[in-house]
């Protein structure tokens, strides 16, 4: 049964790791806005391609 010392220790460390990860995410601002990122991901790339091709003024071969 002494293995309990080890398993409980490990489980607390794992849970603590998640707690730290969550705190980091909160202080990093990831929970400040949960609407815009979902919109942002939908149209980012397309505009970059457009800009690149128009700037060169040459048709893509």
């Amino acid at each position: 049964m002494e293995v309990l010392y080890l398993t409980i220790g490990i489980s607390v460390i794992i849970a603590g790791g998640f707690l730290i990860a969550f705190s980091w995410a909160v202080y990093n601002g990831q929970y400040d806005d949960r609407v815009t990122p979902s919109i942002r991901i939908l149209f980012e790339d397309q505009a970059e391609i457009k800009k690149g091709s128009d700037d060169n003024q040459t048709p893509l071969s």
Binding site: L19, S23, Y31
Partner: peptide
């Protein structure tokens, strides 16, 4: 804005303690 963040942390710590004390 920061008060909202600290609220989440308070909640996370209480949740962490809840789970582990239960165990």
């Amino acid at each position: 804005d920061t008060s909202n963040r600290s609220m989440y942390i308070r909640l996370a710590i209480a949740g962490f303690a809840f789970g582990n004390t239960m165990m």
